[in-house]
Design a protein around this nucleic acid. Structure first.
Lengths: 245, 245
DNA sequence: CGCGATTGAACACGACTGGTGTTCGAAACT
DNA sequence: AGTTTCGAACACCAGTCGTGTTCAATCGCG
């Protein structure tokens, strides 16, 4: 586990911690801790005060993108590979934001597809591709996450009809449906689902037991769920094809 | 001058050249030349054949972004600084694609503004800013250039009204007006001009003697031109404020 | 107001990365 | 078949990044 993540969690759990404590915990020098706190403060993870830092992470919110991107990386890769396998050449795809979908984007780089990613991270991953047609949606990128949201995004999505939507989420269950942490994000996901003929959810197993604030859509609006472990059997009952990567 | 640029020009001037010739010309080993040819071929600059490469650059087209970005860099920086000085805090700005406008973007990073860049390069330069509101237009990014074009881009621009448009171009004169190499780009520039109350052109002096294929707008639609050397006096006569950086 | 604790700029060191050259077996033309 | 060209693999060098140390400046508390 990276030191940044270690610090983030320690500060979150304790509420606030001193620089010396963190140095002792991680084994790094105080100067290094200060530099770490600086980058975490820039990411909005915590707030510095003289002698230490206090957490800004609410229990209901998710950790910032940079800290999520390389955790559970192997599970995400497997899920992404399975999702990429479900997509046929020539399709048009709308690709949600989030770290799992970013891995999907990387696998689509050399495919012959039309792709509209909903996050600038994925746009950047795909912008050097010669083989695929890249469509950028408009919108306002959320800091760190770089997920595009707002009326421009909704307009871009609803101006088009896709063969497939690949959706990530923060929570999914048969009972609660698809949920997201961010309200604006939820609206974007909803638009993507509405504009696509087929909807695939890419969800690592930890999300199958969680429910987030913003409701996106009922589980029945999904055609397939790709996950990395056996999960909610209720999903299959709702008519969703469950693929275990 | 970088070796890539040297190779590009030599191949363009000769039509086609052998690897050995290029190695002798640049002083690099043949292996290095081959690697260079590989990247230039990926950029669409030239086409490789056994023993050498032939140019794909048409006389009327412009060299690819990666090769333009660091030429005349000091002039571009000066122009960009002058442009940034013309923009007041709180304004909303639409920022054209191109290398000069990218330098403007870098200078706007920590300002308090609303900015819609028309190229993904500029989007990336600005996406880490905490102080400004970044708006991404939709569209299809042109390979290499990453300039956004197409109906989604036009729709994004015309949905908004900006205080200022900063426009780059490929040619500008009082007689021929503003011109661009790419037709779709020209349409985007035109939309940006139409959506802005004030239009500033950022143009290095070499463009003041050139005219490109696609007509964008007459010189009279500009409010100011920022350039790096004394140019066309006809512009001032057309009611354009000429700023020499 | 003064003293101790904390901070961040500056420098040093080591690991790592990217670009270049060399070698050599494979592939491609004549 | 012979010759040339190509590119993968390795070595090497320089520049960069991350980390630790030092020290002067700054902050906050008594």
């Amino acid at each position: 586990m990276s030191r940044l993540k270690q610090i983030t969690e320690a500060v979150r759990d304790a509420g606030s911690l001193g620089v010396a404590d963190l140095a002792a915990l991680t084994g790094a020098s105080e100067m290094t801790i200060r530099r770490d706190l600086e980058v975490l403060a820039a990411q909005g993870v915590l707030e510095r005060f003289r002698g230490g830092a206090r957490s800004l992470l609410l229990r209901g919110s998710e950790p910032p993108f940079a800290l999520r991107s390389d955790e559970n990386i192997d599970a995400k890769r497997r899920i992404a590979a399975a999702v990429a396998g479900l997509i046929a050449d020539g399709e048009s795809v709308v690709l949600d934001s989030g770290t799992t979908c970013l891995e999907v984007a990387r696998l689509l780089h050399d495919r012959r597809l039309t792709v509209m990613p909903l996050s600038l991270h994925a746009v950047n991953a795909l912008s050097s591709s010669a083989s695929l047609t890249l469509l950028v949606p408009g919108g306002r990128p959320r800091p760190g996450e770089l997920a595009l949201t707002g009326p421009l995004t909704l307009a871009s999505i609803s101006a088009l009809r896709f063969d497939t939507a690949v959706i990530g989420c923060c929570g999914l269950s048969a009972a609660q449906g698809l949920t997201a942490f961010d309200l604006e994000d939820a609206a974007v996901k909803r638009a993507a689902i509405a504009s696509a003929r087929r909807v695939i959810a890419a969800v690592d197993a930890s999300k199958l037991t969680r429910t987030a604030l913003a409701f996106v859509a009922p589980a029945s609006s999904l055609d397939a769920v790709v996950t990395d472990a056996d999960g909610d059997e209720g999903l299959a009952a709702a008519g969703v094809a469950v693929v275990t990567a």
